[in-house]
């Protein structure tokens, strides 16, 4: 029985992690690299020469120059998605053990999207994915807010899916509460990177995470139901 959870989480995490890494290299990495140019001062937005704009681009992914960096990014995508895969199959098994549902691969897709909403989207509403070079509030309060937000949003997803009677309505205050409290922010703007680049990075990161989570949910349920047969 533990074997089933172990193998489905690992297989699903590896599959989703590799897909996510591929998407990250294709869509996210170049804006991250460009952000690092501003972080390091190699590029300066609104340079002192008085020019009102900065040229776009100038940072392309180069596997040959930094192979370890990209191997590590791929490896950590896999580790992260295996980690989330364990949590996802644990919850799937819990839902089945309590007679709340019968898992199917198609349903797994919904589980994955719910995971994306809870773990990525809800925290990102208050703390968008940050480009290198961004300065944020103190790390401690940000981590606390992030953790509280994904836990309340995760509980909200569970209540929406499985809550009896009026319980699903509790999802509304659970989703709103962290945003009403508000994520920790600074009183000033420090960004050295162009706003357009930071926005593009945030949006691309969320898209990448949505696809990764959808793949994770599908594969987790697929391997979970296969192993069960």
């Amino acid at each position: 029985m533990p074997m089933k959870l172990l193998t489905s989480a690992v297989f699903a995490g590896v599959a989703a992690g590799l897909i996510a890494a591929l998407l990250q290299f294709t869509f996210v990495t170049s804006s991250l690299l460009e952000g690092e140019l501003y972080e390091a001062g190699a590029k300066v937005h609104f340079a002192v020469d008085g020019s009102p704009q900065s040229p776009r681009g100038g940072a392309e992914i180069d596997f040959a120059a930094e192979p370890m960096r990209y191997v590590m990014t791929m490896a950590f995508n896999v580790v992260t998605y295996v980690g989330f895969g364990f949590l996802l199959v644990a919850l799937m098994a819990l839902a089945e053990a309590r007679g709340l549902t019968k898992i199917t691969p198609r349903q797994g897709l919904i589980w994955g999207i719910a995971g994306f909403i809870a773990i990525q989207l809800a925290p990102a509403i208050g703390q968008p994915p940050v480009l290198p070079g961004s300065i944020g509030a103190d790390i401690g309060p940000r981590q606390a807010w992030w953790m509280a937000t994904l836990l309340t949003a995760g509980l909200a997803m569970w209540l929406l899916a499985f809550g009896r009677g009026l319980l699903p309505l509790l999802a509304v205050p659970l989703l709103l509460a962290p945003q009403l409290v508000g994520a920790p922010t600074l009183d000033t703007y420090f960004g050295v990177t162009p706003a357009e680049l930071a926005a593009q990075f945030s949006a691309m990161s969320l898209g990448y995470a949505a696809a990764g989570w959808a793949a994770l949910g599908f594969f987790a349920a697929y391997f979970y139901t296969r192993e069960a047969a």
Binding site: V79, V82, G83, Q143
Partner: peptide
């Protein structure tokens, strides 16, 4: 799952942080 996520998303050791850097940014791990 939580152990793996601590390792990939949170652990502060410099070597881990640098290796996981790009992925942590993209996943918005604070």
């Amino acid at each position: 799952g939580m152990m793996l996520l601590f390792f990939s998303g949170y652990a502060q050791a410099t070597i881990l942080h640098d290796a996981a850097h790009d992925q942590r940014h993209a996943m918005a791990f604070p």
